[in-house]
Design a binder for these strands. Structure first.
Lengths: 236, 236
DNA sequence: AAAGATTTAGACCATATGGTTTAGAAAAAG
DNA sequence: CTTTTTCTAAACCATATGGTCTAAATCTTT
């Protein structure tokens, strides 16, 4: 029966906005200009959450700037419930930090209230279809923020300044095991060398990293990109 | 002289692709269908880098899948030079991991070779204008990957499972200092308590976190969100 | 082939760390 | 106003860790 006639089920929507004017404006817009079904509206995050549990909508339009419980916390809570609700965040302005945090905690889309109504409908359409949608303008802001945070975090030290680059291969292996909380005895066993050899390596590592104990060496390693070819940190 | 006639300087481009067919195809396309100026081409990353240093183009189109030095490493190196070159990554398929890594290290755009030529021109246009451009389809892939990695990292432990939540205030203070690589003696001085008291706290911490040494305690703390209300990690 | 770096490993010693128990004072919870 | 928890601190001991020096075998580089 594939590729046959598909009766596309109307996506059910809940709209959340503390401003009643906005709320009803958006509601009308959706009811008039789209096929979606606004099953409920809420003017506070806490009410919204109970409504979501009750109606199990496909889509939630969530205003971020609300007093009391703010929209971001609400999104995080709803995502934690894991009901499969797809949340589109809504704000008045394109603060990249807000965009970043919303997307981070699981929003499937983000639109500005100032955007054309067609854009809102399109966004809902895309998100209802399982995609994640960010308008090009917001996407651009997001990525600038994203890259900036990476740059700051990663380029703390140049290659010459990063003392990790002076370690030999074997020293790296030893340090790697230390960053897993393994004792010297354990390291010796894993690397098939004697414990005294491990101690020699460790002492060399200390000198090269200019630290005086295991914990500091591990912290230096973690803070300066050791193993960061797989694991990536971003600071926000 | 603002808002006067602006002679928009043609953006200068260098194209990098190990496949010569592709390379000349793209070159012709750009020369015929756009205003951009292809100042050079390269079939390897290392050649590309010297050409970039020489010509200082505004835009670089960089193929990711190349033998020898791969495109991602090349992008990272070029970004490190900090010449203000804006790099657009180019691949045959939409691997979200590749997209994520490319954007992470600073690519200003990402397009597929299979995309329409108009799309390529548009991307260059946007990136040359200072924006970051990801076609909606790739952007969607990116965000799925992005959110998945956050979800995995953040929802490792529930509040009850996270042993850090069983620590007392004083124990948290001690652990905090340990995560800074401070010795027991140092902790004692900072908290104005005796060293034996520190040891008592530390032993209690070990029991609560189910570890047997300082390094493991520090690693547990760092891996399980101690101090993570400000810093956010994502694992890839 | 020679020089240098890396990896291995021992001796020796000092001290920091970890394990266990006991216990009083202070604070919080009931 | 008890009871419980937290914070403080000591004694005691075993062992892991760290500092320094020496040195041979192996691998790299010139």
């Amino acid at each position: 029966m594939r590729r046959g006639l598909e009766f596309k089920k109307k996506a059910r929507i809940i709209i959340v906005d503390d401003n009643y004017e906005h709320l009803s404006g958006i509601k009308e817009l959706i009811e008039i200009e789209s096929d979606f079904d606004v099953v409920a509206t809420a003017t506070s995050a806490s009410v919204a959450i109970s409504l979501i549990k009750k109606y199990r909508p496909e889509i939630v339009l969530m205003d971020i700037n609300m007093p009391e419980k703010d929209g971001l916390t609400a999104i995080a809570e709803i995502e934690k419930l894991d009901l499969g609700v797809r949340i589109i965040a809504l704000t008045g302005y394109d603060d990249p930090d807000l965009i970043f945090r919303a997307m981070k905690i699981g929003a499937k889309g983000y639109i500005l209230k100032t955007m054309a109504s067609a854009q809102l409908i399109y966004a809902i359409d895309e998100v209802a279809a399982g995609k994640i949608y960010l308008p090009a303008a917001l996407s651009s802001r997001f990525f600038e923020y994203f890259q900036k945070s990476f740059k700051e975090e990663n380029q703390e030290l140049s290659d010459e300044e990063n003392l990790l680059n002076y370690l030999t291969q074997r020293e790296e292996e030893v340090l790697d095991l230390l960053t897993q909380g393994i004792t010297y005895k354990g390291v010796a066993q894993k690397l098939f060398i004697s414990e005294t050899t491990v101690k020699t390596h460790v002492n060399n590592i200390f000198q090269k990293l200019q630290v005086n104990d295991r914990t500091q060496a591990v912290l230096y390693a973690l803070n300066n990109g050791f193993l960061n070819r797989r694991k990536v940190k971003i600071a926000i």
